[in-house]
Amino acid sequence: MENFLEQIAELLEVDVVNEADELKSFEAWDSLTILSIIAMANENYGVVLNAAEINGANTIAGLWSLIESKKA
């Protein structure tokens, strides 16, 4: 999870993120960031996400759970 937090922080253009942070609260949250998350999840975790699923994840922790659930 530590790696994941670092990767997400980089995509959101902030130094650190917390599990409880809401995705929509970040200034960099937009359709381009969602594209970056789709690519990152595919390359690093081998899972395929779509935009609706990512928006539905709500928080950083929710996004991690989504990726974990797809890996299973």
Partner: peptide
Amino acid sequence: MKMLPLRS
């Protein structure tokens, strides 16, 4: 084709 913002 890989659609990504340049930062990624």
